[in-house]
């Protein structure tokens, strides 16, 4: 009987593994339908957007750009942008830098990788900065650093909380050491704000890495992250090559960071407004006490 089993197998038709081509991976008509990269479910883009760009099937969080974030997070019509017209120079005369920036401006319809301003969440006034990874991978140069610093100063001036949504590949290479110094600039601004009693909430979204994770993203009184977000300092490949060791599957995910004490909580998008409102209200001065 055992033999039979073996012979049966040899008679079986040869099977080949199929490797999906790049085209097949995204074989969904653009626009109308979207395929979840995590669970591969295909769904209507409209329904996905209605669900805050969270996969209806597996809860995967699709990237959100700054505009979508404003619409989904702030009270309707409450957002007032500041420093919207600030744009990059080319301090190192880096070849093609400004052309690339200009191209991204056209593509994303925003002027830099961060949008800043004031708004309210369920009536709680806040200053906020929202990074946008579709613009130069959300990289931080002089403009990103300056706009974030000014948003922090605005929060300080108005004595309102500062909330930042981070999404960045790190410092912007084309501005060299000037980019590096933006880490220090934003941090000293946060320190002054914090010493004045200011509330800082950082919400890390996919991806938050390099100089951004090593400065303002990690300096919140509360550090949160979206599920599955990649957060870390050095990239996975760099670490693997330098220590010659395979890293765990969940390395540098939000879940990994929570386990290792770096986050207060992971908040999924549908819960975000309620949880942040709760926190803002706890920090609201002068509430009624019912003795």
């Amino acid at each position: 009987m055992l033999k039979e089993l073996f012979t049966k197998n040899t008679h079986k038709k040869k099977k080949y593994a199929t490797i999906p081509t790049e085209a097949a991976k995204n074989d969904v008509p653009e626009g109308i339908m979207t395929k979840c990269p995590s669970c591969k479910t295909i769904m209507y883009t409209k329904e996905l957007n209605k669900n805050l760009k969270v996969c209806l099937h597996c809860g995967f969080h699709f990237a959100m750009n700054a505009k979508e974030r404003i619409v989904s997070f702030l009270d309707e019509g409450s957002f007032e942008e500041i420093n919207e017209n600030m744009v990059s120079e080319n301090p190192l005369n880096f070849p093609d830098y400004l052309e690339k920036v200009e191209k991204d401006r056209q593509k994303t319809k925003i002027n830099e990788a961060v949008v800043t301003g004031c708004g309210s969440v369920n009536g709680n006034k806040i200053a906020l900065a929202i990074m946008d990874s579709t613009f130069r991978m959300g990289s931080m140069g002089s403009v990103v650093g300056e706009k974030i610093t000014r948003a922090i100063e605005k929060a300080d001036e108005m004595s309102i909380p500062f909330i930042i949504f981070t999404a960045s590949g790190g410092a912007r290479m084309q501005e060299g050491v000037l980019s590096l110094m933006q880490m220090a600039k934003t941090s000293v601004a946060l320190k002054r704000f914090s010493d004045n009693g200011g509330l800082i909430i950082s919400i890390m979204t996919h991806p938050t890495t390099g100089g951004v994770s090593a400065s303002f993203a990690s300096l919140g009184d509360y550090n949160f992250a979206e599920p599955g977000a990649l957060i870390g300092f050095a990239g996975r490949r760099v670490i693997e090559q330098s220590i010659r060791e395979e890293l765990p599957e969940d390395f540098q995910t939000a879940e990994f960071l929570l386990k290792h004490g770096q986050l207060d909580a992971i908040i999924s998008r549908p819960d975000l407004i309620d949880k942040i409102t709760n926190l803002l209200e706890i920090h609201q001065p002068g509430g009624e006490i019912e003795w």
């Binding site: 929570l258 004490g261 770096q262 207060d264 909580a265 709760n278 209200e281």
Partner: peptide, 14 residues
């Protein structure tokens, strides 16, 4: 009311 649990020591673990 509204207890919001915070995790982690920001250094090693929760």
């Amino acid at each position: 009311d509204g207890f919001f649990e915070c995790h982690g020591d920001r250094a090693f673990g929760d």
